[in-house]
């Protein structure tokens, strides 16, 4: 499978710190996949996210995006165009005074001509379903809507990758669904690669692959079905266990002879029915 991002032996120290925040992390991100990165607070997952578009540069090792290298001054702007980031706080990344001004911000930075800009704004705002809000001001929008505007701003730059850095953690359940559904559609229909730093279990469960970060290192990497069988690993990564997994365990403790832990309710009900 073709890689869109390659993280190679990356170690990172914040200025003045003696212990590295990232220790020898190596990671391939496949083109078109949905990759979830999970880990407890301070595991280095957000630092890793900021490595992916050159907001932070590795102390050792390198990060490659397509044919570009984040550490090269000539490449950095192309890297930032290709890898868009949605941050945690919906308010603190909304630069413009209105929805269309905000979407334009990135395009203005890249010197896109005005006519092309208008075209791309209209097109990208429709892709996140916010076309009715073009002239709205940020304080009139919900958190989920602001995050969708942030996504539209990225889409207008014709990116290859969207990084969600805990982008749904400050939203209410409706906003969360709204944002995840929007990104999922972009991922499925348009093949945009998604890297999601998250605590959200449901989101990690539906990812193509999951990376578990722990103390600045990559502790595990694999498909959700495998990762979520490793109970202790998840606990140590500060992640809750999926409901069906918890129930499978509790059932086994009650003496029910399940062959394994199940990830979905349907699978578990069917497995139990076979035992009956």
């Amino acid at each position: 499978m073709e890689n869109i991002i390659t993280v190679k032996d990356v170690t990172f120290y914040y200025p003045g710190e003696e212990t590295p925040t990232l220790k020898g992390v190596t990671l391939d991100v496949h083109k078109g996949e949905w990759l979830s990165i999970v880990g407890h607070n301070g595991s280095g997952k957000s630092t890793l996210a900021k490595m992916l578009n050159g907001l932070l540069l590795p102390s050792e090792g390198a990060v490659f995006v397509s044919q570009y290298t984040t550490g090269l001054p000539d490449d950095i702007w192309e890297v930032r165009r290709l890898v868009g980031m949605v941050f945690q706080n919906p308010d603190n990344q909304f630069v413009g005074t209105s929805v269309q001004d905000d979407i334009a911000f990135g395009l203005e930075n890249f010197g896109v001509p005005r006519e092309e800009m208008v075209k791309r704004i209209n097109e990208s705002v429709a892709r996140v379903g916010m076309e009715a809000f073009l002239n709205q001001e940020p304080h009139q929008l919900s958190g989920g809507q602001k995050q969708r505007v942030a996504i539209a701003g990225i889409l207008a730059q014709k990116p290859s990758v969207i990084v969600l850095d805990e982008a749904t953690s400050m939203l209410d359940p409706i906003g969360r669904i709204e944002v995840i559904d929007t990104v999922r559609e972009l991922n499925k229909k348009e093949g945009i690669t998604v890297i999601s730093i998250t605590h959200d279990l449901e989101e990690a469960l539906s990812a193509d692959r999951v990376v578990v970060m722990k103390m600045g290192e990559k502790a595990a990497e694999g498909i959700p079905e495998d990762i979520f069988q490793q109970r202790d690993l998840l606990k140590s990564a500060g992640l809750d266990l999926p409901f069906s997994l918890k129930l499978s365990e509790a059932l086994r403790q009650q003496g029910v002879e399940l062959d394994k832990s199940y990830l979905t309710q349907e699978e578990l009900v069917n497995a139990l029915w076979k035992l009956a």
């Binding site: 409901f243 918890k246 129930l247 509790a250 059932l251 403790q253 009650q254 003496g255 029910v256 139990l272």
Partner: peptide, 10 residues
């Protein structure tokens, strides 16, 4: 709770 549910089902 998950425990109560497990008990009931088992």
């Amino acid at each position: 709770t998950v425990e109560e549910l497990a008990e009931q089902v088992s």
